[in-house]
Design a protein around this nucleic acid. Structure first.
Length: 485
RNA sequence: GGGCCGUUAGCUCAGUUGGCAGAGCACCUGAUUUUUAAUCCGGUGGCCGCAGGUUCGAGUCCUGCACGGCCCA
């Protein structure tokens, strides 16, 4: 800490001590509030004509001293409101305000009135210190802009930038709406293990850990899929889970190593039913957030009220490259990649290769709500083989604004085929392919036809808040630890 | 992993062909009983990200590293 900051801190600590010496607690236990700022403003007419006694608390975010009066603003969880402190009302206690700084929490008691400029204000009759801050707040006008500091010290970001808080409130609202939507349709929310002896349900590098009591290697889940399907076998036939998944992979605008996913499984349904569910869900969220189905994302207007476009994976790719992608080997795809500017460096499996072609050549240009569907079988071991084409699976990915929002299938339910499909993945050298015997065993007890869906909550929040980086919708995004000093 | 950009006071930012380290906010002192980015007087505050190099002299030029951002993969 440098001299100036240390000095400022010393001064504030001295004020804390001064308060204590006067018999005042600088960090007391509670404050009885009668209102929050938004309620005072909303009910001003009634509160002012009835001269209601108002007790309100918050952080002092501005202090304007005029000798024997002080104006300030108090910010609480709902907004902010002006306070007006006068020596003739506060008497001796007015001098204590020398010990009050911007950044401190106080509680005040008084009445609401309007100043001559028309601002709703609390005329303070008494006040209490609730917490003294020892460090200076970010700049009052420009706020806190440095993105690194914003992510590393989110508390400061939230104090200084109200629009940031708004994004996270919308995030919570979206998650609540998803739950409401599914609960109303009879889905049951469950919790399954985050700590798993064998990972599965996706193609991703897992985080590993070790459980001492069992003397056993464990993984943080990359997906909830295989556990939720066990519940479908067990008869919880409309089920979902909201939770964190962990993937030990790169970190960029669309990826955080821990991210929030919802997975939904509905027995006796197929992927066509799931598409309708997704259409209804997005419409439901938009209507409840904004009162309309149109949203703006990256300067584009997107209407979530219409049926989504259906785009077949292989057809789209065929049109783009002029030949059937399924007729190619991994080697010939590499050559084709060079021709179309698809970088295939480090891609060792056919499934990943096809995914890569699609995401680079087609996905980024999909702006309208679209279901990319019927992927090559090889890409997706947990989806049912397509009823009309054995080379494809019944799968779709919802895409809006170039962002892949999730993944859904008619779930594979045939235990014999499921085993073969897992083995096929392992043989094809698909990275991180596993064979979960216990899961296959569960399937052998009979899993009904089932539609399944996973949605990336963080990316959905990006869409609905028109935000371009996943770090803006995750409170504490992963960053590299700064060098030790 | 590669390319480009950024890192200067607690915060927001300037900093000229390489020549004394700057402003606003915040903080401290004083004035001020309807201000609201309050105003006015006077002050304090720097490991210029880190480590090397070039130079009489480096915030500035060069190299490496760290962290971050964007793009590419």
């Amino acid at each position: 800490m440098n001299d100036e900051l240390a000095k400022e801190r010393e001064i504030k600590i001295a004020k804390v001590e001064r308060l204590r010496s006067l018999g005042i607690r600088p960090y007391p236990y509670r404050f009885e509030r009668t209102h929050q700022t938004d309620k005072v403003i909303a009910n001003f007419e009634k509160l002012s004509t009835e001269k209601t006694n108002i007790r309100i608390s918050g952080r002092l975010v501005a202090k304007r001293e005029h000798g024997k009066t002080i104006f300030g603003h108090l910010a609480d969880g709902q907004g902010k409101i002006q306070i007006y402190l006068r020596q003739d009302f506060l008497g001796e206690k007015f001098r204590l305000l020398d010990l009050l700084d911007v950044g401190d929490h106080i509680g005040v008691q008084g009445e609401a009135f309007k100043t001559k400029t028309g601002e709703i204000t609390i005329l303070v009759k008494s006040f209490e210190f609730l917490a003294k801050a020892l460090r200076p707040m970010p700049e009052k006008w420009h706020g806190l802009k440095d993105v690194e500091t914003r992510y590393r010290s989110r508390h400061l970001d939230l104090i200084a930038n109200p629009e940031v808080k708004k994004i996270f409130l919308i995030r919570t609202k979206i998650i609540n709406l998803i739950r409401q939507f599914l609960n109303e349709r009879g889905f049951v929310e469950v919790e399954t293990p985050v700590l798993q002896p064998i990972y599965g349900g996706a193609a991703a590098n897992p985080f590993q850990t070790f459980y001492n009591a069992l003397d056993q290697k464990m993984f943080l889940r990359i997906s909830d899929e295989l556990y939720l399907k066990r519940l479908i076998v067990g008869g919880i036939d409309k089920v979902y889970e909201v939770g964190k998944d962990f993937r030990n992979e790169g970190l960029d605008r669309f990826h955080n190593p821990e991210f929030t996913q919802i997975e939904v499984y509905e027995a006796y349904a197929d992927y066509n039913d799931v598409m309708r569910l997704v259409e209804e869900l997005f419409k439901f969220i938009a209507l409840n957030l904004f009162g309309k189905t149109e949203i703006t994302f990256k300067d584009k207007n997107i209407d979530l009220g219409k049926p989504w476009l259906r785009l077949k994976f292989v057809d789209a790719l065929k049109e783009k490259i002029g030949e059937d992608p399924l007729a190619h080997s991994i080697e010939s795809l590499k050559k084709l990649g060079a021709k179309f500017g698809v970088d295939t460096e480090g891609v060792h499996s056919l499934g990943k290769m096809l995914d890569k072609f699609f995401s680079e050549l087609i996905q980024k240009d999909i702006i309208e709500p679209t279901f990319v569907m019927d992927h090559p079988r090889i890409t997706t071991p947990l989806a049912k083989t397509h009823r009309d084409n054995p080379d494809l699976v019944e799968r779709f990915e919802p895409i809006i604004g170039g962002i892949e929002l999730g993944n859904a299938f008619s779930e594979a339910t045939d235990p014999i085929e499921q085993r073969k499909r897992f083995e096929e993945q392992i043989k094809l050298n698909e990275e991180y392919a596993t064979l979960d015997e216990d899961f296959i065993n569960a399937l052998e007890y009979g899993m009904p036809p089932c539609g399944g869906l996973g949605l990336g909550i963080d990316r959905m929040v990006m869409l609905f808040t028109n935000t371009e980086s996943i770090r803006e919708v995750i409170l504490f995004p992963q960053l590299r630890s700064p060098a030790a000093e």
